[in-house]
Amino acid sequence: MNIEKGLFYTKDHDWIKIDGNQATIGISDYAQHALGDITFVELPGIGKEIKQQETLSTIESVKAASDIYAPLSGKVIKVNEALNETPELINTSTYNEGWIAVVELDKPSEKENLMDATRYEEYLKTLE
C-alpha cells in the first residue's frame, strides 16, 4: 500500500495536502483499492461552505459507493473537473491527478486532528 510522505490522512482514508490556508483533498491508496475501479465521482459545487465531517463528495465503483467526508471545514474553491470524464484517475494517479477538491480553510487548527504518513501507516496496520 502506497502512503505518500508529506501528506496528512484521516481515519476515513482521505489524504490532505496543506498549502498555507488551502487544502487539496483526495482518497488514499488504501481507499481506492477497497473501492475498486472508480466509475463516477460526484464533485461538490464551487463556493460550497462545508464543515468538518460533512459529505464533500461521493465516489462510486461498480459494486460500492462511498461518501467522502470533509476532513477540514472551509469553502470549496476548486474541483477536479477531469474526474467527470476520467474518474479512473483516482485509481491510476491517486495522490496527484486523482485529487478531488481544494478547500480554503476556515479553521486551520482543525488539522491537529489529522494523521501524518507514519501514524496513518500504523493505523492501517490496526485494520488488518
Binding site: T39, F40, E60, S61, V62, K63
Partner: peptide, 8 residues
C-alpha cells in the same frame, strides 16, 4: 462482462 466499462 466488463461492468466497469458499462458504468463509465
Amino acid at each position: 462482462l466488463d461492468e466497469t466499462k458499462a458504468a463509465r
